[in-house]
Design a protein around this nucleic acid. Structure first.
Ligand SMILES: [Mn+2]
Ligand SMILES: [Mn+2]
Ligand SMILES: [Mn+2]
Ligand SMILES: [Mn+2]
Lengths: 222, 222
DNA sequence: AAATATTTTTAGTCTAGTCTAAAAATAAAA
DNA sequence: TTTTATTTTTAGACTAGACTAAAAATATTT
């Protein structure tokens, strides 16, 4: 189907470009890409030339880069595989949601026919990964969802945890300790004007969550 | 546990050394290693120096190589992971036994804590892979089994298919078509002295199997 | 024991992917 | 609009892992 051979490094760069453009639509700048990849700007420039030669990106010197149709498809497929593997690791192997990212970062690059289809089927066609992120379908179509940051709730409103905007193990572990896994219900009791912290009820317990948490936690209002 | 960092390439070479020494105990020669890896002898020499620097092999110029304790452990663990993933692909994802090798060749290199333990548990601690090859346990211990080549059976003897000595997709597919999957029963009707071919009964059917098949098919005599 | 054949190593080159330091282009400020 | 700051690219170097061709070591014949 995708006749372009890509190395793991190339795939990771394509995914990084996709993720930056997802948050901040438009062209992606070299420094932003280098930062996302944890490499030097020189290395990013280097890779952009390679990706451009392979027609996976439209790259203009000094101006930035965007994914081509093919590049977009490869990135989408990579994200699909990443998230399917995460579902496997959590649902089938019993890992916690903060333990699976690095594994998936490797597993997403496994090459071969029909693997993602079979995995998808085995997992029961999951539509979201363990962090609440949508899994594009085999055709690369994305599911759109309405979710709100906890910070936007007003006192009295209730919500179901649907996702996170910070995937760091420390944040994920902290949420798990609070009982705030995907699907957990909470109610906003009050918001402190001084520091925007949120006092919430989670089941029987109450907890005070910082502005940072309020910013990084997504809920569906119910 | 294993504090030595190894690249995929290094791991593949270690596994190749292990496999050659398994068939032909003693030191492994450069050319044999290069042949097994499908690389030039120069590349093999190159890698042997690297592995020797890392103390994963005992290498003497012009004399050959053997695995060190650590090298042996890494190779064993790699084979364990390879075979566990093959079980996953066949038992859980529904691939045929001739389709899984290349996937496992990649999956065996996935790095991270507790992955093989969890996978092993999820699969129910399988002791053999889809090709009948034993899966070493988490301590690296091997299970020994008595099996015979079909060629050693005498007319009238019956056997259960337990393994293959040729893992090529074409042989595996041929066996599957014959109904000779793992666990299948057969009975030797007669052996043609002229070309050592075996006339066998497989369930209701009869089939004539070449010497090559007789050589590469393992059975447990019942 | 010499000559010949085979095996293995060395030498030199290549590519992908990284780096640092310097140069060039672009953007912002004076 | 010129100067200064920032961003990006280029230049040059490094490593892992591959190659080919040549040299050296070992094994086999004569
Ligand atoms: Mn990755
Ligand atoms: Mn995720
Ligand atoms: Mn491998
Ligand atoms: Mn196998």
């Amino acid at each position: 189907m995708n006749s372009v051979f890509t190395t793991s490094a190339e795939e990771n760069y394509l995914k990084a470009i996709f993720k930056i453009a997802e948050k901040e639509p438009g062209v992606v700048l070299t420094n932003a890409l280098a930062a996302e990849m944890g490499t030097s700007a020189a290395s990013a420039t280097d890779m952009l030339k390679r990706l451009s030669d392979k027609q996976l990106v439209a790259y203009e010197k000094y101006r930035g880069v965007t994914l081509s149709e093919t590049g977009n498809r490869i990135a989408t497929d990579l994200i699909r595989k990443h998230r399917l593997w995460e579902v496997f690791l959590v649902d089938k192997l019993g890992f916690a949601w903060d333990e699976v990212h690095e594994f998936a970062e490797q597993l997403e690059h496994i090459q071969g026919e029909h693997l993602s289809e079979r995995l998808d089927e085995f997992l029961g066609h999951p539509r979201f990964d363990p962090h609440g992120d949508p899994i594009p379908d085999a055709q690369g179509k994305w599911m759109r969802r309405t979710q709100s940051r906890l910070l936007t709730l007003t006192p009295g409103q209730r919500g179901v945890v649907t996702g996170v905007d910070d995937h760091s193990p420390s944040f994920l572990q902290y949420l798990a300790e609070l009982g705030l896994s995907l699907g957990a219900e909470l109610a906003l009791i009050e918001r402190t004007p001084y520091d925007q912290s949120s006092k919430v009820r989670i089941g029987e317990r109450e907890a005070v969550l910082s502005e940072k948490v309020g910013q990084n936690l997504f809920v569906r209002i119910i």
